[in-house]
């Protein structure tokens, strides 16, 4: 895959500054981070510490003010928007805190969305969608709309959507933040299984120490600076 020095994710002196009116707000300051393929990394930190921003940079949905982001063999700063979108489709599976399923589509159609960007046949898409839904234990709910699902089920559909195209990297932004303890535990177990059985590299942002405990490695972010 041509990873940066053998790392799936490598960030070099990454800075991110937001501008609100005329005020500069530094969010990330000189981040250096390396993640090997197959790892399960948890990023912790207080609100506003820059966790989600860091995750967005790794997922290629935001760009750094300064520094380099290398993920899955690409320097993201060099990619034009069209290629970056194609790169995300190929390499990134994103799991949101609020699930973000498309409400007018069924669970099946939501999971199928990333496959519509591929050249897979309808039959192969169907096979993959059923496989992903089976993996998260929701094949019987394929025809249900998100409104008919519980929070935990919605998040499992979102995970099925994230893995259906077999991405290189799974990024999860507080995936249990909106769930009760039981559902949260189920989601974390699922992420662990994806990491262990399907060898998916997982980077998860969380507030919850119990969630972070499921990861191989936990890094802390405070005021935009990464702590060991």
């Amino acid at each position: 895959m041509g990873n940066e020095n053998g790392f799936l994710v490598a960030l070099r002196d990454v800075h991110k500054v937001y501008h609100r009116d005329r005020i500069e707000i530094p969010v990330l300051q000189g981040i250096n981070l390396e993640v090997r393929e197959g790892e399960f990394l948890a990023l912790m930190g207080p609100s506003g510490s820059g966790k989600s921003t860091l995750l967005n940079l790794i997922a290629g949905i935001d760009s750094p003010t300064k520094g380099e982001v290398h993920v899955a063999g690409e320097s993201l700063g060099t990619l034009r928007p069209k290629r970056l979108a194609a790169w995300r489709a190929r390499h990134i599976g994103f799991i949101f805190q609020l699930y973000n399923l498309i409400p007018v589509l069924t669970a099946y159609q939501n999971v199928e969305l990333p496959l519509l960007l591929t050249r897979l046949s309808g039959k192969e898409r169907k096979r993959r969608v059923h496989f992903a839904l089976e993996l998260v234990g929701l094949r019987v709910r394929a025809s249900h709309s998100p409104r008919a699902l519980s929070g935990g089920e919605e998040q499992r559909v979102a995970i099925a959507r994230a893995i259906v195209a077999d991405p290189t990297l799974l990024v999860a932004d507080e995936p249990t933040g909106d769930l009760d303890a039981k559902n949260a535990a189920e989601i974390l177990t699922l992420l662990q299984r994806l990491n262990a059985e399907l060898k998916k590299t997982v980077i998860m942002v969380t507030h919850d120490p119990h969630a972070a405990a499921r990861a191989h490695l936990t890094l802390h972010l405070d005021k935009g600076v990464l702590q060991p």
Partner: peptide
């Protein structure tokens, strides 16, 4: 807005 952002996250390009 959020749904469009989600689609773009999934890899739907600007043109699409």
């Amino acid at each position: 807005t959020t749904e469009i952002a989600v689609l773009k996250t999934l890899g739907f390009g600007d043109g699409l």
